[in-house]
Nucleic acid binder design. Structure first.
Lengths: 116, 116
DNA sequence: CTAATATATGAACAAATGCTCAGATAAAAA
DNA sequence: TTTTTATCTGAGCATTTGTTCATATATTAG
């Protein structure tokens, strides 16, 4: 009579408690996963890496990625809300840039990992 | 007569080319997004952070996260395929551990970012 | 061998994601 | 003002994701 769950509940109570104590508050792990979620997409990763070379407008990014400008605009909104990018208006054109250097560092470290 | 796409194609050809030249091959950006995808989930982030404290079995992780062991097992498979975790069998029990220190570094850096 | 334990796995399904499409908005040109 | 350009936005839809459920597998006990 197979059950959905194992009958065991906790094999090592001490390890579970140790992990719980070392864990930062939910608020932080939640923001962590949001940050990584922003990087968890080919287009967004490329956009952020492209912006490391200097600011670009929406048209530029769309051409670079080979996708529609609407799609880029949607992605940029997400990155803006997470304050990973910022923009500056010059007439009708919006120039986007990286909001700070943290993202570049994360990407660089991740690159080192996958290249090892 | 509004169009779906902007009529402009490329405003700054030089910036698009500069970005393209600086971009690593698709193979790498693809692996990058896969890596970040693995971290883009509350449960997986917590699992990886928990394993920084030492190895844990599936039961332990399920108890710690408060989710079913089946769910944990599915997540572990993904982390295994990305070689972010490794395991060791002791009788019927599988003990999971971090495969290397890179993930910890990434999480630490990301934590610094959201805490700033 | 059979039974029990710990974990793995495939199918199914709900929720989240990323795109497209049709339009809305902001700024400059005519 | 009207028109055009560059970007934004919401709705709709297809794909992906994370879970549950039922079952399969691996190991040990009896």
């Amino acid at each position: 009579m197979p059950t959905d769950q194992c009958l065991c509940r906790i094999i090592h109570q001490d390890r579970v408690e140790r992990a719980s104590q070392a864990m930062p508050p939910n608020r932080e792990t939640d923001r962590l996963s949001l940050l990584f979620k922003a990087l968890a997409d080919q287009s967004r990763i490329k956009m952020l890496m492209a912006l490391e070379q200097g600011e670009m407008c929406v048209c530029d990014l769309a051409a670079f990625l080979g996708v529609s400008e609407s799609a880029v605009s949607h992605q940029l909104r997400m990155l803006r809300q997470l304050t990973l990018v910022a923009n500056r208006r010059e007439g009708p054109v919006l120039y986007y840039r990286l909001a700070d250097a943290h993202v570049s560092q994360l990407v660089r470290l991740a690159l080192e990992h996958i290249r090892e």
